[in-house]
C-alpha cells in the first residue's frame, strides 16, 4: 500500500499549518520531527481524517481517503497528542468501546483488548477506572486503543509523552515488532526514540517537509557542521550564549566538552564529529520554540 499526500494544504484563517505538502509513504516506520507549530499534528490529523484539507488530497493506493471513508478508517489506528477519555470507564471498558467503533466483534474485541493491555503493561489494571490512572498509564491505554484493529496505517502523535524510560523501551519494542509490512508514523519530543525506531525521518518546518530520508541520509546534510571541543568549565556560560550547543559534558579536570553545531570550527582545536538527529534538529530549529 502507498499513502500519498498531494499538494496538501491546511489553513486556519490566515495561518497556513500545512503548506502544499507532497510525500509518499510506503511500508516502514516514519519519524516526524519539527518544532512547535511546524505542522506535525495538523499533518497527522489530516492523515487520520479528523480534519479536512483546505486543498490538496491524501490518497491510499491512488484513492482519496475521504472517498474511501470507512474502508480507509478500517485500516487506520491513531493516537492523538491529547485525547479525552471517559473517566468512569475501566481500561477494558474503554478498549471494548473503541473496538466496537472499529467494528470488531465481541469475541475478538475482548481477546485483542486483553492482549494489548498485557503488551502495554496494563493487564493488572484492566478493571480500574481510567480516572484513577496516571498520565503514563493513560498514554499506554491510548497506544493500545490505536492498535486494536491491527491497523495497516498507525499514526502516533507524541506516543512517548509521559512514559518513563522503561515504558519507552517497551513501547519501542512493541512498535518495532509491529511495524513489519505497515506504515507507522510517529512524532515525538524525544529524538532518541525516533533514532531507535524510525527507518525514515520527515522533518517539518513551517508546514513543509524540509528533509525526508533515512537518518544517516538526512544527517549527512550537516556533515562537517558538528564539532566537539574541550573548554574551561568556568567559560561554559560564555560559550553557551554565543554558540549553538547540542550537548555538554563536564570532565574531572575542570574542563567541559561541548558539542557545538556550527559551520566553522567554534574554537581552536575543535574536532568534527558525526552528526546525529538531535544535532540536525538543533541545526534547523535553533532559536525556535523547541519541543
Amino acid at each position: 500500500m502507498e499513502l500519498s499526500a498531494v499538494n496538501l494544504t491546511k489553513r486556519y484563517g490566515s495561518k497556513t499549518a500545512v503548506n502544499r505538502l507532497n510525500v509518499t509513504l510506503t511500508n516502514g516506520v516514519y519519524g516526524l520531527l519539527g518544532a512547535n507549530g511546524a505542522g506535525k499534528t495538523t499533518f497527522m490529523r489530516l492523515l487520520c481524517t479528523v480534519q479536512r484539507p483546505t486543498s490538496g488530497k491524501i490518497d491510499l493506493d491512488g484513492k482519496n481517503i475521504w472517498k474511501l471513508g470507512e474502508r480507509y478508517r478500517d485500516v487506520l489506528g491513531y493516537l492523538p497528542q491529547h485525547f479525552g477519555y471517559y473517566p468512569d470507564f475501566t481500561a477494558l471498558g474503554f478498549l471494548l468501546y473503541v473496538a466496537a467503533l472499529k467494528g470488531l466483534d465481541d469475541r475478538k474485541a475482548k481477546k485483542v483488548s486483553n492482549k494489548l493491555l498485557e503488551e502495554v503493561g496494563l493487564s493488572g489494571e484492566s478493571r480500574r477506572k481510567i480516572k484513577t490512572f496516571s498520565g503514563g498509564m493513560k498514554q499506554r491505554l491510548g497506544i493500545a486503543q490505536a492498535m486494536l484493529n491491527d491497523p495497516y496505517i498507525l499514526i502516533l502523535d507524541e506516543p512517548t509523552a509521559g512514559l518513563d524510560p522503561k515504558e519507552r523501551v517497551r513501547f519501542r519494542n512493541l512498535i518495532s515488532a509491529y511495524s513489519k509490512d505497515r506504515i507507522v508514523i510517529l512524532s515525538t519530543h524525544i529524538v532518541s526514540d525516533i533514532e531507535f525506531i524510525a527507518e525514515k525521518i520527515m522533518m517539518m518546518k513551517d508546514g513543509e517537509i524540509i528533509h525526508f530520508g533515512r537518518p544517516h541520509e538526512i544527517t549527512s546534510g550537516i556533515d562537517g557542521c558538528v564539532w566537539e571541543c574541550s573548554v574551561p568549565t568556568s567559560r561554559v556560560e560564555q560559550y553557551t550564549a554565543s554558540l549553538n550547543i547540542s550537548n555538554l559534558r563536564n570532565e574531572e579536570n575542570g574542563r567541559t566538552v561541548l558539542r557545538v553545531i556550527a559551520d566553522q570550527p567554534p574554537v581552536a582545536g575543535a574536532v568534527k564529529v558525526q552528526p546525529n538527529l538531535e544535532d540536525l534538529f538543533l541545526y534547523y530549529f535553533k532559536g525556535e520554540d523547541e519541543q
Binding site: 490529523r45 487520520c48 481524517t49 479528523v50 471513508g69 470507512e70 478508517r73 478500517d74 487506520l76 491513531y78 492523538p80 491529547h82 485525547f83 479525552g84 477519555y85 471517559y86 473503541v98 466496537a100 467503533l101 472499529k102 467494528g103 486503543q145 484493529n149
Partner: peptide
C-alpha cells in the same frame, strides 16, 4: 461531550462518522 478530546479517536475509527 466528545468534543473535549475523544472526538479524535471516534472520528478516526471505522464507524466514528457513521454508525457511531
Amino acid at each position: 461531550g466528545e468534543y473535549s478530546g475523544v472526538d479524535n479517536i471516534i472520528l478516526s475509527s471505522k464507524y466514528g462518522r457513521t454508525k457511531c
